[in-house]
Design a protein around this nucleic acid. Structure first.
Lengths: 345, 345
DNA sequence: TTGAAAGCGTTACCAT
DNA sequence: ATGGTAACGCTTTCAA
């Protein structure tokens, strides 16, 4: 592609044109840098004549001037950037949608959401890197941030640190996703339907232990002090592993299984049926997440519907925390779990 | 939470402690700011005595000093930030994984990937906002960036602009996802299996037209100059709409359907079966994306396996472009499409 | 081996 | 109504 320089034709200028600054705009418009700033930021405190405004605007347009965010926030001493590290665990469609809505909600409150792709640094190292951006708030999904990290972030000016996970972190606001409730919900349902020997699928995939462990605990809690038993069933997300598990199903002597989520449930369901295990006749199956696809299975999949926190509420929590950084960390239980009974249980 | 000031006990300091700067570190260590910079950046050009180095490091540690990225890149005149706007279309698991790998690959090349959550500005407005961050490269998935936007980005110092979509954009490197090939692959397969009246599902969901339109074109191309017909079938991603479509299936007189992707395929498959249409006996069904879950359907779903570009290759393309910004825009066709024949066709 | 000073692009204060 | 100037935090050249 040929470079077409806008600089006077006499100059050869093979070097790429430098990025225009507000000084360039000022020069072209014949005013001072201050005036440029006033005009472009619609400063109401000072009155600039209309012709001047036009000249400045035209000069900015002609040069293709774009303000330099770093310089601006350096000068201002603060920014409205919210850093959200990319989750380190495989994220389902539910959660994915939630993150999208959250971005939207924060955007509407005039924050700039930046999802930071942390390569794989250990928690408190990562916090340092995020802190270098001097975000006004940090929203951390999952674990990987300790009290140390929170300190680092706050010390470097973050007015709000919010974690979204299963455990609270000292010094940070916490949205606690109560995965035990999910397991409890499933366990209670299966028990009520007369099942007593309950299997619980534990995904082999790394990173999911965070969610699966509390879900297992929830099931155990649900049938605590009863005659029911709970058996953990490691399962990788692939057909062959499901087949292997189904092949030894009889030896396990289970009459129900909570399959971690709908995807694992569908996988296992199919394998069980292929192995000649009747669902729900021989074994009841319950998933979680209430995915559309679970409804398409035969039998239709019973599932734990999970209600994630409202993106708007979370955005407002962040905003509140930013406005009043001194306030005590809030702690909210989120994740409503309700059972949707269909045909597989 | 009680604020515990580290400042001398005599000072009341109810105001939050200011964020430490390199000047604070210098003062505490009893050296100049220059020395601090040298030590903390391991500058090899100058030799600093070991005791001094230690004093500086300890001072930085004690104050919890974290360098200010904005100030640094302002001074340096460039950064290694790669801005990747969040896709505006609903993104499937395939694409999601790809984006994750891409982040990793770029991170390994020492770029800092920042996924920018654009609220919903029209294309070239958005480009301005991205440009304010002065990224060294911009990676735009999907449409929403015109030649204007590319100009804005380049003028503000972006050394590489890469689009990942269906159409090339003037001035930008392009990774062209050939969705026509997906449709072509499906259409050819159905034709070869003797099907002549082919339906193509077109999702009603907004934002998906970008992919569905070329896929339809691909099917048409595959059966061009033959006796086969192609019928577009609008379908929303919900059970009732699928039911409605299935109810009038007989009147459509189709013997095959390419269902846009596996999820729509599963939805439609179930609705067809419920309506008494045999699959593949009466109607053959083909999906796309080769999801695990498609394999679990009965009959197992035939599908178009889609090969996304290698994240490493793309990262290297970006790196190459950054190193040589003057080079002509590269244009690569990506997206290998191969049919996986199972039982539904 | 270390320090002083300039400058990156902005904006807010204080003159004019 | 407009312009000069200083300062934000950092790196780097030059001088000691």
């Amino acid at each position: 592609m040929v470079q077409i320089p806008r600089t006077p034709a006499s100059v050869p200028s093979p070097a790429p044109r430098a990025v225009p600054t507000s000084a360039d705009v000022a020069r072209l418009a014949g005013v001072s840098r201050a005036t440029v700033s006033y005009v472009l930021n619609n400063a109401s405190a000072v009155r600039i004549s209309e012709p001047t405004r036009r000249r400045v605007r035209e000069a900015a347009e002609e040069l293709g001037y774009v303000p330099h965010a770093a310089a601006r926030s350096l000068r201002a001493g603060h920014s409205r950037m919210v850093v959200m590290p990319a989750p380190t665990f495989p994220v389902g469609p539910l959660y994915h949608r939630f993150l999208g809505e959250l971005q939207g909600a924060l955007g509407r409150l005039d924050y700039t959401v930046v999802q930071y792709g942390t390569v794989g640094l250990p928690g408190d190292e990562a916090a340092r890197v995020w802190a270098e951006l001097r975000p006004v708030a940090v929203l951390v999904p999952g674990p990987g941030l300790g009290p140390q990290g929170v300190q680092v972030l706050k010390r470097s000016g973050a007015r709000a640190v919010v974690t979204l996970g299963t455990e609270p972190v000292e010094g940070a606001h916490a949205l606690l996703m109560d995965h035990e409730a999910v397991g409890d919900c499933a366990g209670r349902h299966l028990y009520d339907r007369g099942r007593r020997r309950i299997g619980v699928v534990v995904p082999r995939e790394p990173g999911l232990g965070l969610f699966s462990a509390p879900r297992v605990r929830g099931v155990r809690r649900a049938v605590h002090d009863s005659d029911a038993t709970v058996t953990e069933l490691p399962l990788g997300y692939d057909e062959r592993d499901a087949e292997r598990l189904a092949a030894r199903w009889d030896t396990l002597g289970l009459d129900a299984v909570f399959a971690y989520n709908d995807e694992y449930a569908m996988l296992l369901c199919r394998a069980l049926q292929d192995a000649g295990v009747a669902v729900p006749g021989g074994t009841a199956v319950v998933g979680a997440d209430d995915l559309m696809l679970g409804r398409l299975l035969r039998p239709r999949l019973s599932t734990v519907h999970i209600e994630l926190p409202s993106a708007r509420d979370l955005a407002e929590l962040v905003d509140r925390a930013v406005r009043d950084p001194g306030a005590a960390p809030e702690r909210h239980k989120v994740l409503g779990a309700t059972l949707v009974h269909r045909e597989s249980s």
